[in-house]
Every structure is written in structure tokens, then in C-alpha cells.
């Protein structure tokens, strides 16, 4: 069998390092990350395999992969990594790259989760929990999901029917607008 690595494959790892300061090239495949990962049972590509793919410059495979979308950011991997790689920061960068690059996202529901969440923050300045849950269910095409929990939470005084808007909503809009402006300038 011929090895099929051509040229410098470290470009992807370097791109990630530039974005978050984490050097994936130092990973030596001890697999502590995957062993401790509570979500490994859902991942087609396990955490250590994803790290190896990054080292090999397989950008397309990684960004279209499912690893970072199952990651729950529990930080177990990063805590145990003998090379001190903050793997969750790598996951964050990969999610950001996958969204910006309009890659296919295998766990579509998690992308909806983040979009709907940030919409709520953008509109009210705070998370409107009930609206968030209902909008998410609509995005997941499952409007009655968890409908039984609503009355239980309401009877316990745990659900607010109306959003609590911050008074200075203009300042929140500004945050989102300014972030966009600065990010566009950097690109």
C-alpha cells in the first residue's frame, strides 16, 4: 500500500492554532480524550480520530464530520489531555468554521439550538426560556415535543409566559452589530 500524503498537511492544524492558540500537532494519540468522553458512543469519528484527521490536513472530512456537533463541552478531554490541548476550544473553532463555510451539519438539531438561542438573546437581551423551547421545537419540526413539561413547570412557577426584555435593548443590538462589523473587517 502506498502512503498518500502529499506536501505539507499541517496547514489545517496551523489554521486552528491561529484561531484559538491550540496546537493539535502535539497530539500523540494516547486516546484519553475519547476514553473519558461521555458522548463518544454517539460519534462516528471519535475525538482522537478527529485530532489525527486535523494533523493529516483532512479539512473537508473534519468540517463535515459529526464529532464537534455531539461534543457537549464538558471539558473532560481537555482536563485529561497530557499535552494540555484545550480540545473544547478546538471544537468551538471547528463549529464556527463549519457554520461559516456552510458545511453539511450531521446533527442538524444542534445547529438549530444555537441559532434559536442567539435569536432570543438578540431580541430580548436575555434568554426567554419558554419562547426558546417553543421556537426550537418548531425548528426541529416537532412542535409538541416536551409539551407535558410545560404545565408542570408552569404550576411550579418556573416558566415565565412573557419575555423579560432588558431596558437598554439598543445596547444589545449594538453588541451583535459591532461583532459582525469587526469580524467582517478581519476576514
Amino acid at each position: 500500500m502506498k502512503a498518500a500524503i502529499k506536501g505539507d498537511v499541517s496547514f489545517f492544524a496551523k489554521e486552528i492554532e491561529a484561531a484559538c492558540g491550540q496546537d493539535v500537532l502535539t497530539c500523540y494519540q494516547c486516546r484519553k480524550c475519547t476514553m473519558g468522553c461521555p458522548m463518544a458512543f454517539k460519534m462516528k469519528v471519535k475525538v482522537n480520530e478527529m485530532m489525527r484527521a486535523v494533523q493529516l490536513g483532512r479539512k473537508e472530512d473534519v468540517l463535515a464530520g459529526d464529532t464537534m456537533w455531539w461534543c457537549v463541552s464538558c471539558e473532560t478531554c481537555a482536563t485529561r489531555c497530557p499535552q494540555g490541548i484545550e480540545i473544547v476550544e478546538v471544537m468551538d473553532v471547528l463549529r464556527e468554521m463549519a457554520i461559516k463555510g456552510e458545511y453539511y451539519i450531521p446533527v442538524e438539531s444542534m445547529k438549530s439550538f444555537h441559532e434559536v438561542f442567539l435569536n432570543s438573546v438578540r431580541s430580548y437581551g436575555r434568554l426567554y426560556e419558554m419562547g426558546f423551547a417553543m421556537d426550537l421545537n418548531l425548528a426541529l419540526l416537532d412542535p409538541l415535543k416536551d409539551a407535558g413539561l410545560g404545565p408542570v413547570m408552569f404550576s411550579k412557577g418556573k416558566l415565565k409566559l412573557l419575555p423579560h426584555k432588558v431596558k437598554n435593548l439598543e445596547s444589545v443590538k449594538k453588541i451583535f452589530e459591532n461583532v459582525k462589523k469587526i469580524e467582517e473587517l478581519q476576514e
Binding site: S73, D92, R95, H114, L118, G125, V166, I175, V179
Partner: peptide
């Protein structure tokens, strides 16, 4: 007074700058 959401757990999955700016407020 009039605090704003910190953006967890979605801002850091979508934009690094936003994920710092919201809690920095």
C-alpha cells in the same frame, strides 16, 4: 442593573468575539 445574557452555551459555538463580548458586558 439591566444585565444582559452571557451567551452560554451558544455564543462560543458560533462566534468567539461574541462569546467574550456578551459576558464582558
Amino acid at each position: 442593573p439591566d444585565w444582559v445574557c452571557c451567551g452560554a452555551s451558544s455564543a462560543h459555538a458560533t462566534s468567539h468575539l461574541l462569546s467574550i463580548a456578551l459576558p464582558a458586558k
